[in-house]
Simulated scan of single mutants.
Amino acid sequence: MLWRNGLTLVFLLFLLLSLVGQAVAGARLFDEEQRAAGLDPVGLLAYVGSSSFAVDLAENWQSEYLQFFLFVVATVWLVQVGSPESKPLDGVGRESDEEQRVGEHAGPGAPSWARRRGWRLAVYSRSLSLVMGGIFLLAWVAQSVAGAAAYSEEQMRDLQDPVTWWQYVRMPEFWSRTLQNWQSEFLAVASMVLFAVYLRERGSSQSKPVGASHTTTGVDG
């Protein structure tokens, strides 16, 4: 059971460890800033429940799910010659029902909604991008709300007026933090797509077979 789900479980463990590390390091940094401002430290538990921790967490999550959403949708229509991250060059588009094994072409192990026509098939055919896009939007909203609260707290510590959510999402502070994360995600995707054309990792599903030519597209090892 553990072996069959090893990829998911290991990365969830990495997530947990990094969350704990972020919380501990972030709490120490926050308390140092509190002391420098002549205020009392808040401690780990209070920090984890604060808007400062929430905005950093949501900021990372929304950029990651934006990356997934855009990559899932883009790879329907766009290709990269030689990359295992791309479909074959002649596979652009949504593909036929027979190729996608839906409706009357569905096999015995197919999900129930893949067997049906109408709205169920339409939704299920786009369920991955819908979920990824939905999580991105929720995380983006959470980031903006928590960011507005954290920014307002800083303003009040400096004896300045707090801001509303609408004011905050129009500020350079918000978009600087947001776009800073987005560009790193876009760079990571472009790098993975292009590097995998020429470089190999033996046995990885994200790499072509070691002996495959550089122009072989849509094949993994």
Rank of each mutant, 00 (worst) to 15 (best):
M1G: 15
W3T: 11
R4T: 07
G6C: 12
L7W: 12
T8C: 08
L9I: 14
L9A: 10
L9T: 10
V10E: 09
V10D: 04
L13T: 14
L15E: 11
L15S: 11
L16R: 00
V20F: 09
A27M: 05
L29N: 13
A37K: 15
L39G: 05
L39M: 14
D40F: 03
D40P: 08
G43N: 00
A46C: 04
A46Y: 01
Y47A: 07
V48P: 07
S52M: 08
V55F: 13
D56K: 15
L57D: 05
L57M: 12
E59V: 05
E59W: 14
W61M: 15
W61T: 13
W61D: 07
L66D: 01
L70C: 12
A74M: 13
V79Y: 11
Q80H: 10
Q80E: 10
G82L: 13
P84V: 06
E85R: 15
E85T: 08
S86A: 08
K87P: 02
G91P: 00
G91K: 15
S96N: 09
D97H: 01
Q100E: 10
Q100G: 03
V102Y: 06
G103M: 10
H105P: 05
A106K: 02
A106E: 01
G107Y: 13
G107D: 14
G109R: 06
W113E: 06
R115A: 03
W119T: 11
V123S: 06
V123H: 09
R126T: 06
S127C: 03
S129N: 00
L130V: 06
V131I: 11
G133V: 01
G133H: 00
G134H: 03
I135D: 01
I135E: 02
I135K: 03
I135A: 02
F136G: 13
L137Y: 04
L137S: 08
A139L: 14
V141A: 12
Q143A: 08
A146M: 05
A146L: 08
A148C: 02
A149G: 00
Y151A: 09
E154M: 04
Q155T: 11
M156G: 00
R157Y: 02
D158T: 07
D158E: 14
D158M: 15
L159Q: 09
Q160R: 15
P162W: 09
V163P: 06
T164K: 00
W165H: 15
W165V: 12
Q167H: 04
M171H: 14
S176L: 14
N181D: 00
N181F: 09
S184D: 02
F186E: 02
A188Y: 11
V189S: 11
A190S: 14
A190H: 08
A190P: 07
A190E: 03
S191F: 15
F195T: 04
F195Y: 03
A196N: 09
V197P: 07
Y198S: 04
L199V: 15
E201A: 12
G203S: 05
S204Q: 13
S205P: 02
Q206S: 12
Q206D: 09
K208M: 09
K208R: 12
V210Q: 10
T215H: 08
T215N: 06
T217D: 00
V219I: 12
